[in-house]
Design a binder for these strands. Structure first.
Lengths: 121, 121
DNA sequence: ACAATAACTAACCAAAAAGTAGGTTACTTC
DNA sequence: GAAGTAACCTACTTTTTGGTTAGTTATTGT
């Protein structure tokens, strides 16, 4: 049992999951791992089904937790890019492992996944 | 975009997360990784905060998805044990990575986590 | 014989997470 | 000058998730 910021965690895994758990975070991080320097709309268009509300919210939390960094490229017009921070990069093996695992699973289902970098853009 | 069983996934990572996402699944799997052959009550007592409803539900889904196996040790009285399946084991690096990451994070917060195998028992 | 334990299940309800629809500013393109 | 685009924000509703309480069967321990 670990106590931290008035919250209780069952173990270190629980602590880690508090940062990257949830429906979209790992997906966002793994996209930034595959495609560094993405803008808001690029992220959105490559996460079919996500709402803008969710995306903003998750990006804000990931930034707060220092897993990603946001660069403001210009103020007017307002243009940004998101990149993984060092902490976010440190989880790269995780993104790759999950991707591999997903691909293997798809194979067992007779689906042969070939990555297309321009699938949605 | 991947279509499978009338559901749409954005990428292989999404597929993987559909099996191990959720609040408790990785926690259950990682406990079974640390302590193979656990009974229901052992699992429950080592996941402080989980309700029995949640535990049953998650165990059932993990079994359905073939990440764990359930051995019925005796019918009367009804005694069982849960173990990781080969598929569940194949995610071991993930549990270890998350645990390490959590421990490192705790260090940055001045918390030195030392694992105690008998913390809750 | 009474309480406790293991391994659950079911019904009900509250809280949290996520979706929907609409609006904003300041460009750029037709 | 009208429409389109990037990068958001806000209020409201719905859905999903999870908590609570209670109950079951069969056995062991006191």
């Amino acid at each position: 049992m670990i106590q931290l910021n008035n919250k209780i965690y069952t173990c270190p895994v629980d602590v880690a999951l508090s940062f990257i758990g949830g429906k979209w975070k790992i997906l966002i991080l793994s996209q930034l791992h595959q495609f560094p320097r993405r803008g808001y709309v690029e992220l959105r268009d490559n996460l079919p089904g996500i709402s803008e509300k969710m995306l903003s919210q998750q990006l804000k939390e990931l930034e707060r937790d220092k897993l990603i960094e946001k660069n403001v490229l210009s103020k007017k017009p307002y243009r940004v890019e998101y990149i993984l921070s060092a902490d976010g990069e440190s989880l790269s093996p995780l993104y790759e492992m999950l991707s591999q695992w997903g691909i293997s699973y798809l194979e067992t289902q007779g689906i042969h996944y070939t990555q297309d970098q321009h699938l949605y853009k």
